[in-house]
Structure formats: C-alpha cells, structure tokens
C-alpha cells in the first residue's frame, strides 16, 4: 500500500504524458494541461520542503551550539530580512527586496563563481599534464580553442579563429553528439523503468 499506490500514480502520470504526444486531442490534452498545472503547484511545495530543511538544520545548530554556530544567526537573520522585505513590500523594481537582490545577493553570487577563475588557472598550472596521447590531444584542442575564440587569436594567425570555429563545429560537435545520443538513450531507458515501476529508488525507505 505504501509503495503500490505511488507506483500506480507514477505509471498513470507517465502514461498520460506519453499518450498526449501521440493523441493531442481531448481528453488527453485537457488531462495534460491539468497535470501541468498541478505539477507546477506541487513542485513549489518541494521547494518549500528544501527550505524547511535548511531552516531546521540551522535552528538545531542554534540549540546545540557546535563550533561556528553563530554563523547560523547570520544565515537566519539574512533569511528573515529578505523574506520580510519581499512579503511586506513586494518584489517590483525599486522595492527593498529588489535593492537587497541587486546589492547583496547579486554581488555575493557573482563573486562566488568569479573565484573559480583563480582556481582554474591554478589547476591548469598544477595538474594539466600531457601524460598520454589522449591527454595531449585534449590539451592541444583546449589551447587551440582558447586562443582561437578570443580576439588575440586573430593577431597571432589570421586563420586561428576559423580553425577554432572548425574544431567547435565539427570534431567537437561530433563528440558532443555521440555523448548526447548516449545520454538520450540512457534517459529513455531510465524513464521507462520508472514509469513501469521497475526503478523505485526515488520512493526511498521501506
């Protein structure tokens, strides 16, 4: 009962989505629209679940006070300020919520990822070695693309941008297509296993 009904639900939902591709008329189109609407709403509650979990973890940290517990206060305060700003005064351009987005969320998010530039440079120097013929091929391809795809490449050799574009459009594209087809077949088989109830790990537990 605890697992049988969810498996039946998965089957029905999956089959409706597949059938409406081939029979895009009523009632399948109506059911599809209904399911689409329900999906969007239920997915929000999944987000709320994740949020609830985050707040729960940090609330527990405040109670237990392990090392560095005071940073949880920062997190919860930040959450509270942003949440109240949004729910209290709206999210339009020019609102407090919008101000906090542009001047706190945005710079921190951008800078977190900007750090990666330094680490990729460091990793390139320390770890990128042409140990095998395959690694050499990877390295040569990377260098040709890196130089060919910036304006500097044109000044080194005027054919370099064309070579870079050719590598991207043909051999790279061929490799990416092979990967894409492989992934697609994997997704198809996994989706089929899920819909038919063979794959049940997403249900978890007993």
């Amino acid at each position: 009962m605890k697992k049988q009904i969810p498996i039946i639900i998965t089957f029905i939902a999956g089959m409706v989505m597949i059938l409406q591709y081939f029979i895009p008329h009523r009632p399948f189109s109506d059911i599809q629209q209904l399911f689409n609407t329900w999906y969007v709403i239920i997915a929000v509650f999944a987000m709320i679940l994740g949020l609830g979990n985050l707040l729960k973890i940090h609330a527990i940290r405040l109670q237990r006070r392990p090392k560095g517990w005071w940073y949880s206060i920062v997190l919860l305060l930040g959450f509270a300020v942003m949440f109240i700003a949004g729910m209290g005064w709206g999210i339009e351009r020019g609102s407090l919520f919008d101000f906090l987005f542009w001047n706190t969320h945005l710079p921190m998010s951008s800078t977190m990822f900007a750090l990666l530039a330094f680490f990729v440079a460091s990793a390139s120097y320390r770890a990128f070695r042409a140990r095998t013929s395959e690694a050499t091929l990877l390295l040569v391809s990377a260098i040709l693309v890196m130089v060919g795809r910036v304006p500097l490449g044109n000044y080194i050799w005027d054919k370099l941008p064309l070579l870079g574009d050719w590598i991207m459009s043909y051999p790279n594209m061929a490799g990416q297509r092979a990967i894409m087809i492989g992934i697609a077949l994997g997704v198809v088989s996994t989706s089929l296993r899920i819909i038919l109830g063979i794959e049940r790990t997403y249900l978890g537990g007993k």
Binding site: I5, I12, A13, G14, V16, M17, Y202
Partner: peptide, 9 residues
C-alpha cells in the same frame, strides 16, 4: 510519484 512520473513521461 506524480512529479517523477510526469517528468519521466
């Protein structure tokens, strides 16, 4: 199950 089934479909 509904979410996973819809998405898989």
């Amino acid at each position: 199950a509904f979410i996973v089934g819809t998405y898989a479909g």
